[in-house]
Amino acid sequence: MLIEQIIILALIQGLTEFLPISSSAHLILAPLLSGWADQGLAFDVAVHVGTLTAVVAYFRKQLSAMSRDWLGSVYTRTHIGESRLAWAVLLGTIPVGLCGLLFHDFIATQLRSPLVIAVTTIGFGVLLGWADWQGRRTRNEHTLTAGNVLFVGLAQALALIPGTSRSGITMTAGLMLGLTRDAAARFSFLLSIPVIVLSGGLETVKLVQADIAPDWRALVIGTALSALAAYLCIHLFLTFINRMGMWPFVVYRLVLGIALLIVFY
């Protein structure tokens, strides 16, 4: 891979994984618009490891408390501290895990077109704007019920369709349930951890089975850059989201979707 390809793709993954604008769409579009060859499965795994590293590092204290309290709740059969949130993350991951197993091949072969990305980018962008406008924004992530969590989890399953945006659709669902913007974002970021682990694990298995010699330079640089970009993105997003709202991302999605329709159709 060219060094500029490595840098640009790693930054795209790091910056878009946690913004409500769809990282998968941007990674699909980058080779189409630039003329580069597909970056390959090994590089995709590497940049996902980078974003996973970033979100775990950013929430390390909360994740430590969630893990400890979750184990305590299993032992005592009562909720302790952060255990309710830990159970919520696990429950919210089930729908996307099942849908990924059932529909992964169909999505990978049939739904990676610019038209699908354009439609989902526009459609779910409008839905994000509506949820941000109509949302009560009075709750935090600790108030979510099991039914609320399943609603967010089912919404997350839609993110398997390129252009939807996993973070975007889960934040949309959270806002629809009355979460504040930063609470919706925090829960979305926590939900990303098992999803990235599951998807990265599946891609790693395929990579091992393919027995392809990796480009270690590309993998190391890609992992490091995506991790740094993702960590900075999480920090800035949570710092400013309550003040700026979701509308900059809604406008971006609308412009991107319309541009794709013009360029490709």
Score class of each variant (00 low, 15 high):
residue 2 L to F: 09
residue 216 W to Q: 07
residue 149 V to T: 13
residue 175 L to T: 08
residue 154 L to D: 13
residue 229 A to P: 02
residue 95 P to R: 06
residue 216 W to S: 03
residue 51 T to C: 01
residue 112 R to D: 02
residue 68 R to A: 12
residue 259 A to R: 08
residue 7 I to F: 06
residue 227 A to P: 02
residue 247 W to L: 11
residue 78 T to C: 14
residue 101 L to M: 04
residue 120 T to C: 15
residue 2 L to K: 06
residue 161 I to G: 05
residue 83 S to W: 01
residue 120 T to R: 09
residue 207 L to H: 05
residue 185 A to V: 04
residue 60 R to K: 11
residue 170 T to P: 05
residue 34 S to I: 12
residue 79 H to E: 13
residue 231 Y to M: 09
residue 34 S to W: 09
residue 248 P to F: 15
residue 120 T to Y: 13
residue 148 N to W: 07
residue 106 F to E: 10
residue 142 H to L: 13
residue 253 R to G: 11
residue 98 L to P: 06
residue 85 L to Y: 08
residue 213 A to V: 12
residue 87 W to I: 14
residue 147 G to M: 04
residue 3 I to P: 06
residue 202 L to F: 11
residue 24 S to K: 06
residue 215 D to I: 04
residue 258 I to E: 08
residue 121 T to G: 15
residue 200 G to Q: 03
residue 126 V to H: 00
residue 112 R to H: 11
residue 206 K to S: 01
residue 56 V to P: 07
residue 126 V to S: 05
residue 164 T to L: 02
residue 130 W to G: 00
residue 212 I to Y: 06
residue 44 D to F: 12
residue 18 F to S: 02
residue 47 V to K: 10
residue 45 V to T: 04
residue 7 I to A: 04
residue 72 G to V: 05
residue 16 T to R: 06
residue 121 T to A: 12
residue 251 V to F: 15
residue 113 S to Y: 00
residue 14 G to M: 06
residue 122 I to R: 04
residue 16 T to N: 10
residue 206 K to V: 05
residue 7 I to W: 13
residue 74 V to C: 12
residue 25 A to R: 01
residue 97 G to E: 01
residue 158 L to Y: 07
residue 13 Q to Y: 12
residue 257 G to F: 07
residue 126 V to P: 08
residue 161 I to T: 07
residue 78 T to V: 15
residue 195 V to S: 03
residue 182 D to K: 14
residue 233 C to H: 00
residue 108 A to T: 15
residue 159 A to T: 03
residue 233 C to D: 01
residue 68 R to M: 09
residue 11 L to N: 05
residue 253 R to N: 03
residue 248 P to L: 15
residue 174 G to Y: 04
residue 130 W to K: 02
residue 173 A to M: 12
residue 259 A to V: 11
residue 13 Q to L: 02
residue 209 Q to T: 09
residue 12 I to A: 05
residue 128 L to P: 00
residue 145 T to Y: 02
residue 120 T to M: 15
residue 106 F to R: 12
residue 159 A to G: 07
residue 237 F to C: 11
residue 88 A to D: 02
residue 18 F to G: 03
residue 215 D to T: 12
residue 142 H to P: 10
residue 25 A to V: 01
residue 177 L to M: 12
residue 65 A to M: 14
residue 101 L to Q: 11
residue 254 L to A: 03
residue 26 H to F: 07
residue 96 V to N: 07
residue 188 S to H: 10
residue 135 G to R: 06
residue 258 I to F: 14
residue 255 V to R: 07
residue 225 L to I: 05
residue 177 L to P: 05
residue 9 L to S: 10
residue 191 L to E: 05
residue 245 G to D: 03
residue 169 I to L: 09
residue 94 I to E: 10
residue 226 S to G: 12
residue 19 L to H: 06
residue 140 N to R: 08
residue 216 W to R: 03
residue 178 G to A: 13
residue 122 I to S: 01
residue 172 T to E: 09
residue 158 L to G: 11
residue 141 E to L: 06
residue 217 R to H: 10
residue 254 L to S: 01
residue 248 P to C: 14
residue 185 A to H: 11
residue 92 G to D: 06
